Amino acid sequence: MKKILIIDEMHASIGERLTQIGYESDYLPQISRQEIIDAADEYIGMIVRSKTTIDQDLLSSKPSLKFIARAGAGIDQLDVDYLDEKSIMIVNAPEGNRDALGEHMLGMLLSLSNNLRKADREVRSYVWDREGNRGFEVSGKTVALLGYGYMGSAVAEKLSGFGCRVIAYDKYKTNFSDLYVEEVGLEDVFAQADIFSLHTPLTDETRQLVDASFLNQFKKRIVLLNGARGEVICTKDLLAALKSGKVTHAGLDVLENEKFATLTTEQQQVYAELFEMEQVLFSPHIGGWTIESYENINRVLAKKIHALGL
């Protein structure tokens, strides 16, 4: 039977789903990078999340490998050029957690717009301050999305009942206007956005894209949301924009460096200031990380692996 190596934590249904489509799996979520390198060349596929970089060093001893399946959307941990060179196919599963991501970003926006974290903390401390927690409405605002793939489109769908205008710019897509979104140019995003939400993959082109120069092109003060990758934003420039009021609020599910033990001195200083700001809301990269999406990702991956016809 064809074998698949699973190197990260997956929902318990993964083994049964793979068996149903004719694959045997070795579920080894605690396996180390060196152990993966040293493992026998007996696998036709590998299922990964983001524990380790999938590159030539890891795969050079695996000539039998035919595909890498990413349990999620982002493939920035994969050396795509090397995989292409070796004709190793890439499968990912953005369909599995798009609804979860869309709901999460909407939740961050509504929490920011209604001061929910601050208000909750104050009430628990017996402070009843209505005027100090007066919020703003999403209705009537222009929400601009950068990127309109599975995640961006999910956010647009979730916003459809809020009476706001949703526009999107995607450098690599055209003619995608639909019931939920209006396709625009980047200059329209800068001119019209009240709320700006990032949904781009992390590439050499998008790394540090949102820096001081980028943020200063917005004509209005904006609320910024990031449910993509933290490295898309230059965090120190975001901090400066928050201090100046160019960015009034920020909802960050991802950070430029999420491994806190490896923070540089500068990153520690920037994070310390951000963490003190009431108008900034954080979550630990859990957009798309729900009970339902955990299993849905398995369903999507199994379907796509089966469609490979190996």
Rank of each mutant, 00 (worst) to 15 (best):
I7Y: 04
A93P: 06
G74E: 12
R33C: 07
A240F: 08
Q269F: 02
E292V: 04
A39W: 04
I7V: 13
L59F: 12
E85Y: 11
L255Q: 07
D55K: 14
F176P: 09
L225A: 05
A272P: 03
D194L: 08
Q56L: 13
A69K: 08
A39L: 11
V223S: 10
G245M: 13
E292A: 06
S60L: 06
G149S: 04
A154T: 11
E35Q: 14
S153T: 06
G288H: 02
V138P: 02
Y43M: 12
N175K: 08
L179H: 08
E35G: 06
R130G: 00
Y150D: 13
G309K: 10
H249C: 07
A241F: 09
S111G: 14
A156C: 04
V280E: 02
E278C: 03
A261I: 09
P201K: 02
T174W: 02
E256I: 10
I31N: 07
L179I: 01
G102P: 06
L65T: 08
K2R: 15
N175V: 04
D38Y: 11
P94K: 14
K304D: 03
A119Y: 11
Y150T: 00
A191K: 12
N114W: 03
I31C: 07
L179A: 14
I167N: 04
R229I: 00
I167E: 05
V166E: 00
S64L: 15
F67K: 05
S111H: 11
G161V: 03
E278W: 08
E95H: 08
I75G: 03
V270W: 07
I305Y: 06
D194A: 09
L5Q: 15
E16H: 12
N115D: 12
V127K: 15
A39G: 06
K118T: 11
L18Y: 13
Y271F: 15
S160F: 14
Y126W: 06
I233K: 07
L59V: 04
G22M: 08
N92F: 03
R130W: 15
P284Q: 08
G230R: 15
S153Q: 15
I75R: 05
R33I: 00
I47S: 10
I7F: 13
I90V: 12
I297C: 10
V138D: 02
G227D: 02
D170N: 06
T203F: 10
K158T: 01
E292M: 06
Q269R: 12
G74P: 00
S25D: 13
I21H: 05
R70K: 15
E122D: 06
M108A: 11
L110F: 04
G152H: 03
A119C: 13
L146W: 00
